[in-house]
């Protein structure tokens, strides 16, 4: 398994996209979208993170699935932590009298 050598052009393109997304997310924050401000901010952050993981960290070109499995397993565990904690916090108001 040898790492592919990507072109400088691709890396610079990803970099430019990341910078654009940063500017966009900072500007959109000043526009009132109601609850969607948070959604947009997180979607853009996830997009940026994906670009870094897939291209800068070469996951898109990894020849085996193990790296992807590690990432997915980690995110799954993070979601367990967040969701099951929220199972408590989200329903407390229902049981308090």
């Amino acid at each position: 398994m040898s790492e592919p050598i990507l072109s400088t052009k691709l890396y610079v393109g990803i970099w430019a996209t990341l910078i654009c997304l940063t500017v966009i997310t900072a500007s959109v924050a000043f526009v009132d979208l109601g609850p969607f401000n948070t959604v947009v901010a997180l979607v853009i952050a996830t997009l940026k993170a994906l670009l870094v993981v897939l291209f800068f960290m070469h996951v898109k070109y990894a020849s085996e699935k193990l790296t992807k499995m590690v990432i997915i397993a980690t995110l799954f565990w993070l979601l367990i932590l967040l969701f099951l904690s929220l199972a408590d916090y989200g329903t407390r108001a229902m049981t308090r009298t």
């Binding site: 367990i80 199972a87 408590d88 916090y89 329903t91 229902m94 049981t95």
Partner: peptide
């Protein structure tokens, strides 16, 4: 093993619904 932790907290004041889930 990661899905059960709040059974240590049943009397600590977590919500009844989550206590049932856990």
């Amino acid at each position: 093993g990661f899905l059960v932790w709040a059974h240590h907290m049943f009397v600590a004041g977590i919500s009844l619904y989550s206590a049932m889930i856990f």
